[in-house]
């Protein structure tokens, strides 16, 4: 009884520690698992299922110089705000949604436009590279992304570069290199 009373008198301390230590380490891991936008390439995919962190790990295999990490998320990851979404470097969206997000997309660089002559045009210039063909059911990174859930009508998906991306320029081409890697994934 005496030990039980002593234990219960200490319960607030144990609970306080549980809360504080958990919050502290969550904060530390948020810092560890993130990097400034200039050192990170972010890919957002509007798909039913995305294997996270599997896809990120795969895209980090050959990081461009100056890039510390690649983060691949589905759109549901940013349900409470779209600041992260608008600043993303690469988008994977349905062809039917391309017009809806057109302000977020940048035109394809010349090298990509030449290599993908059938690119989807948005804002009057080629912008989207097809990454999933609904007719054949084949596409890039199918091991990591479920483009069409069983029982639903499949749609073509396209890869776009972000208009506000820091890595889609002449100096910094990291997003292009990550996109090339993405397009080669099985």
């Amino acid at each position: 009884m005496r030990h039980l009373k002593a234990f219960f008198s200490s319960v607030p301390k144990y609970l306080l520690w549980a809360v504080l230590s958990t919050l502290f380490w969550l904060w530390i891991f948020t810092i560890l698992n993130d990097a400034p936008a200039e050192k990170k390439v972010t890919l957002y995919a509007d798909v039913p299922v995305l294997a996270d962190p599997g896809l990120s790990v795969c895209l980090e295999q050959d990081l461009p110089e100056g890039i510390r990490m690649v983060r691949a998320h589905s759109f549901s990851y940013v349900m409470f705000g779209d600041a992260a979404l608008t600043g993303a470097d690469i988008f994977i969206v349905k062809g039917s949604d391309a017009e809806r997000y057109r302000e977020s997309f940048a035109p394809l660089p010349e090298a990509f436009a030449k290599r993908y002559p059938d690119a989807l045009s948005v804002n009057g210039s080629p912008s989207g590279i097809r990454v999933f063909d609904a007719e054949t059911g084949t596409g890039a990174a199918c091991s990591y992304i479920t483009y069409a859930e069983p029982g639903t009508a499949a749609e073509d998906y396209y890869l776009f570069f972000g208009a506000e991306s820091l890595h889609c320029g002449r100096q910094d081409t990291a997003a292009y290199r990550i996109a090339e890697l993405f397009l080669q994934l099985p």
Binding site: T22, W25, L26, I28, F29, L32, N33, P53, V57, E60
Partner: peptide, 15 residues
């Protein structure tokens, strides 16, 4: 030792 691949597991262990 935390990396992208093991971040979730490491976070749980550390907590």
């Amino acid at each position: 030792l935390t990396g992208t691949a093991n971040a979730a597991a490491m976070e749980l262990r550390v907590c």
